[in-house]
Design a protein around this nucleic acid. Structure first.
Lengths: 160, 160
DNA sequence: TAAACGTGGATAAGAACTATCCACGATTAG
DNA sequence: CTAATCGTGGATAGTTCTTATCCACGTTTA
């Protein structure tokens, strides 16, 4: 049935952050969209979310664009995901245990439902994993995969 | 923006499995829906998915209903989630690295994109966590929270 | 002053989620 | 045998979410 899928914008946002980690000046949406072959107008929305989340700063005007607000080592993949997807947990307990013929006592209801506890623990594991990887790690992976001078060419391309 | 939310049917399905773990005979959809105060017709769809996934067996006819196919100790929360949500990963890589001006070499493309690898690792952590909890564990939690004779009353109610 | 750029709002097509209903076959109590 | 119960699969909608586009506006710079 459902898919519990992540927004497609997450992929865009993470890749954009990797590119921004190599930028020497503000990079406009136009450039980032060209670089990734994606929609400029829609990407703009995602970049605004990164901006609101405090991951990037924007400079308006003629030579404006986006820059990371802090070192790539200090931005985790989780940061980017939460900026795009929001911070709400994937599972929302509707407390159906209260609907049945034997609802738990008020005392027992102070604790979250057991199902909810399991889901929360799993989400914590997921977040921990994503928090352990930074944009800098991803950038290092790109040079590993594509060669050391990859980002030199990227910087050159961005300056065009 | 998006929420990467889990289908609401997951909550229903897990709770139903906990109830089924206490059943002494086939439990019809009607009964499960009443127990949880949820829609009968919609719950039927979810139970069919559990059936297709091999987690429950159905018996048709006059005294039909659902039963777990195996011991509650051998059904994990992950099993139920995958039955309802499908087995596709939450993150789907669209390979936007190929769109750019510097696509990786065919050799480098044999490995999944670095972003994808991170997402897959996180999902594995999530799945591991959910695989470590069984329906039996959840049932034990209910007796811990609501008292030891909770399921006696449930069995009595189901037999009504 | 015009061009480039980010911002926020409005809008819309398509997909997914939630939910319901019905026709059908199977089973069983009476 | 017959009627009631029950699961199955298909069809159908309403609502929400996702994806995407466009525009008016303010800012900055050549």
């Amino acid at each position: 049935m459902g898919d519990m899928k992540m927004s497609g914008g997450v992929e865009w946002a993470v890749h954009c952050c990797v590119v921004l980690s190599q930028a020497e000046g503000p990079v406009p949406t136009q450039r980032l969209a060209e670089y990734h072959g994606i929609s400029r107008t829609y990407l703009a929305k995602h970049l605004q979310q990164l901006s609101r989340a405090g991951l990037v700063t924007s400079t308006e005007g003629r030579v404006g664009g986006y820059l990371l607000t802090r070192a790539a080592e200090d931005i985790t993949v989780l940061d980017v995901i939460l900026a795009i997807e929001g911070t709400e947990p994937a599972f929302r307990c509707t407390e159906i245990r209260m609907n049945g013929p034997f609802p738990p006592s008020p005392q027992a209801c102070k604790r979250p439902c057991g199902v909810n506890r399991v889901m929360q623990a799993a989400e914590q594991a997921w977040r921990s994993s994503l928090r352990s990887v930074t944009i800098a790690d991803l950038a290092a992976g790109v040079t590993d995969d594509n060669g050391p001078q990859t980002f030199d060419r990227v910087r050159e391309w961005l300056a065009t």
